[in-house]
Amino acid sequence: MVSNKEGKEGKRVDVKESEPSEPEEIEEPGPHEKALIKELEDTKKQLEDAKKQLDETKKQHEDCKDSLLRLSAEFENVRKRTLKEKEEFVKYANEKLILELIDVMENLERGLENAKKAENKDKLIEGMELIYKQFKNVLEKNGLTPIKAPGEKFDPYKHEAMMQTITDEYEDGTILEEFARGYMLNNKVIRYSKVRVSKRKEDKIENEVK
């Protein structure tokens, strides 16, 4: 568009007025750009989720660390307490047995004092037998039992053969004599019986032939 305007000297000057420019159109992204934008948005969301999960993991780690420290301290306290209780148990485990043996010991002391003054040996023997029975009862009550030996079949888990006697009067492996009595404590052998065992003549001959 052209308009006439007067200049400084009064002359008319043609001035071309600029026409208003139209706004530029923004080109809509294509499928490739849209896919890229979506991928970036997904990646951003994944990063945010990963950061959130990492923060939660750190918190869980700190909580686990605190719990572990508490458990470690509690375990150490329990260990010390258990060790102390075990020491106390071992220290006083035989307290009841010792108290009963004290009674036997005191009866034996009284028996010895009476033996020094006794004129009747029968009463002295009777008193010693009573003390022996008391002592035996205390041991049996605490789980001690003697191992049977004479006349029994030799058992290597209970008996220790010190001698063999060649004879046909008894079956092979019969215990003929007990040199020292064996004992079991609550079904556990704590001392083997030392014994003499029979061996048949034919068994000896067969062994010599072999």
Score class of each variant (00 low, 15 high):
1 M>Y: 10
3 S>N: 09
5 K>A: 12
7 G>R: 13
7 G>W: 13
9 E>A: 15
10 G>A: 15
11 K>F: 14
14 D>S: 13
15 V>Y: 13
18 S>Q: 13
18 S>T: 15
20 P>D: 09
22 E>Y: 11
29 P>T: 02
30 G>K: 08
32 H>S: 09
32 H>W: 06
33 E>P: 07
33 E>F: 06
34 K>G: 07
34 K>L: 15
37 I>R: 15
37 I>H: 13
40 L>I: 08
42 D>Y: 02
43 T>S: 06
44 K>T: 13
44 K>H: 09
48 E>G: 08
49 D>Q: 11
49 D>F: 09
51 K>V: 01
52 K>T: 13
53 Q>K: 15
53 Q>D: 12
55 D>V: 11
55 D>G: 05
55 D>Q: 14
56 E>M: 09
58 K>R: 12
58 K>V: 09
59 K>W: 04
59 K>D: 12
59 K>M: 06
60 Q>D: 12
60 Q>H: 10
61 H>D: 07
63 D>P: 06
64 C>D: 11
65 K>I: 07
68 L>G: 08
68 L>M: 15
69 L>V: 14
70 R>H: 10
74 E>M: 08
76 E>S: 14
77 N>P: 02
79 R>H: 12
79 R>T: 12
79 R>W: 11
80 K>A: 12
80 K>Y: 06
83 L>T: 09
84 K>L: 12
85 E>R: 06
86 K>C: 09
87 E>H: 13
88 E>S: 08
89 F>S: 08
89 F>P: 01
91 K>L: 09
92 Y>I: 02
92 Y>K: 05
92 Y>E: 04
92 Y>P: 00
92 Y>L: 04
102 I>T: 03
106 E>W: 02
107 N>T: 03
107 N>D: 08
108 L>G: 00
113 E>I: 09
114 N>H: 02
115 A>I: 06
116 K>E: 10
116 K>W: 07
118 A>L: 05
119 E>P: 00
121 K>M: 05
121 K>G: 00
124 L>W: 01
125 I>K: 05
126 E>D: 07
127 G>N: 10
127 G>Y: 01
129 E>C: 02
129 E>N: 10
132 Y>G: 02
134 Q>M: 12
135 F>V: 01
137 N>H: 02
137 N>D: 13
141 K>Y: 04
143 G>F: 01
143 G>R: 00
144 L>S: 03
144 L>V: 15
148 K>I: 02
148 K>L: 10
148 K>V: 05
149 A>W: 01
151 G>I: 04
152 E>K: 06
154 F>I: 03
155 D>F: 06
156 P>F: 03
158 K>S: 02
159 H>P: 06
160 E>W: 03
162 M>F: 03
162 M>V: 14
164 Q>L: 04
165 T>W: 00
167 T>L: 01
168 D>P: 04
171 E>N: 03
172 D>T: 00
172 D>A: 00
172 D>Y: 00
176 L>D: 05
176 L>T: 01
176 L>Q: 04
178 E>R: 11
181 R>P: 05
183 Y>V: 13
183 Y>K: 06
187 N>L: 07
188 K>V: 15
188 K>F: 11
189 V>E: 08
191 R>T: 11
193 S>N: 04
195 V>R: 07
196 R>L: 12
196 R>Y: 03
201 K>Q: 07
201 K>G: 00
202 E>Y: 01
202 E>N: 05
203 D>T: 13
204 K>T: 15
205 I>K: 13
205 I>T: 14
205 I>R: 11
206 E>L: 14
210 K>S: 14
